[in-house]
């Protein structure tokens, strides 16, 4: 087994100096090329600058946004919806997952319901949210929680199912009670899966938070994008889209870092359970 890796690795490494360094340089070059392309395409008139302003104008607009207090309020609103929704979904998802796994027959009894409710697109709830809560934060939370709850719940369920029966029986034979077993056997096994669920849920929560703002008009970055669109402020709109992208990127990177940190001790090679 080892031979193949060792034999396979050197030729690839052989070409450049330090691979990480070269990769970073190549990545930076790629990014620079992408930005240059986005600058050139409208300037050369390939695409109308009215639809697709050059990067420099988007950057100007972005600077303008960053100097605007309303922008920061909107960013704060979006992050509030995201964080609150995610926190509720994670708490509820983990609790429900553990309870469903621990109580006998509950897993079988809930399986069909979960299978039915999970694929229901959360945006189906938009009209309901509008009627019930209007443009309040609760509208956003309804969508965010519904969408991200399933990610956490399912990963928790998968994680608990992964508990080694031998470990479980050992704990039982030493007379550990239900709570002690949950704490010392079930939770450590399930934790890596839960963290994966949190990472997936964090991304979904942002998507739904922005969607709710965009479609319903709840205050936040999404609503600001909608306003920019209706008022034909195209560069501002692009700038805001870039901000949501950066936000998404930070959330992804952050969630991955937390996941890795929290699990540095964990030996198991765990595949992400496909949902």
């Amino acid at each position: 087994m080892k031979d193949a890796h060792l034999d396979g690795a050197p030729p690839e490494r052989a070409r450049g100096g330090r691979p990480e360094l070269t990769n970073a340089a190549l990545g930076a070059a790629g990014l620079a090329g992408f930005l240059a392309l986005c600058e050139a395409v409208p300037r050369l008139g390939i695409v109308s600058a009215e639809y697709f302003p050059p990067v420099s104008r988007i950057a100007d607009a972005l600077v303008g946004e960053l100097g605007d207090g309303a922008f920061w309020t909107a960013l704060g609103d979006t992050l509030t919806g995201w964080a609150l929704g995610l926190a509720i979904a994670v708490t509820a998802g983990v609790l429900a997952g553990v309870v469903i796994s621990v109580v006998p027959y509950l897993r079988e009894a809930t399986a069909s319901t979960i299978e039915f409710l999970r694929p229901i697109p959360s945006v189906a709830l938009i009209p309901l949210a509008v009627l019930l809560y209007g443009t309040e934060l609760r509208s956003v939370l309804l969508l965010v929680v519904y969408a991200s709850f399933w990610q956490v719940l399912l990963q928790t369920l998968y994680g608990v199912r992964d508990v080694d029966p031998v470990a479980e029986e050992t704990a039982r034979s030493y007379g550990l009670g239900t709570w002690a077993r949950v704490r010392h056997v079930l939770w450590p096994t399930a934790l890596p899966y839960v963290m994966t669920g949190v990472r997936l849920a964090a991304a979904v929560a942002l998507i739904l938070a922005v969607t709710a703002e965009l479609v319903i008009g709840a205050p936040g970055l999404g609503a600001r994008i909608a306003v920019a669109q209706t008022s034909q402020a195209v560069p501002e709109m692009y700038a805001l889209v870039v901000v949501t992208g950066v936000l998404g990127l930070l959330i992804n990177v952050g969630a991955r870092t937390v996941e890795r940190r929290a699990l540095a001790w964990h030996q198991s090679v765990r595949g992400e359970v496909a949902v």
């Binding site: 090329g33 992408f34 922005v210 479609v215 949501t244 992208g245």
Partner: peptide, 20 residues
Amino acid sequence: AVCEPVLEFLRAVPPPVLVP
């Protein structure tokens, strides 16, 4: 290596903002 950062960014943009 060239595409990775750009792709990471594009993927992170919440798809609904693409509508406008």
